[in-house]
């Protein structure tokens, strides 16, 4: 938990991260930035998906529709927070010359998206009249 609070502080403080290690080749930093942006786009796409469920499945019952939309929106929130956290951790690892952090988040996210997709298919097929 203390480690988490320290990482959250790194999100906001540019000097603290610059004190560590050596500045890596700018190209590595830019590649890390593009990865961060790609995750941010994934988060925005999940948020867009939340809107789309709400807008384009009007035949669904209110509970299902809002539940699916909120699940997608929550995935978007987690994805964007994790994007900045992973970016900071990669930046720090590059400065210290350590291995890049590994993560099980991509696997978890793909499982979550698969579950939501299956739920959507089932709900659309079963609950169309509801």
């Amino acid at each position: 938990m203390i480690g988490f609070a320290r990482t959250v502080r790194l999100w906001f403080d540019p000097r603290e991260i610059r004190q560590e290690g050596v500045t890596p080749d700018y190209r590595f930093s830019l590649a890390n930035e593009r990865t961060f942006l790609a995750w941010l786009r994934t988060a925005l796409a999940l948020i867009g998906g939340g809107f789309a469920v709400d807008q384009f499945l009007p035949g669904l019952r209110w509970g299902w529709r809002v539940g699916l939309a909120l699940a997608l929106l929550a995935a978007g929130v987690v994805c964007s927070l994790r994007a900045v956290n992973h970016w900071v951790r990669c930046e720090r690892a590059m400065r210290r010359g350590e291995d890049l952090p590994v993560s099980r988040f991509p696997a978890l996210l793909s499982l979550a998206v698969a579950v939501v997709a299956v739920a959507m298919v089932v709900v659309v097929l079963v609950g169309w009249e509801g």
Binding site: L10, W11, F12, D13, P14, I17, T23, Y26, S29, L30, N32, E33, F36, L40, A43, L44, I47, G76, V77, S80, L81, A83, V84, W87, V88, E91
Partner: peptide, 17 residues
Amino acid sequence: PTALTPRHATAGALLTV
């Protein structure tokens, strides 16, 4: 160019949130 600052990255993520 210099690397992205953590403040910018955090701002971008928080705007998405």
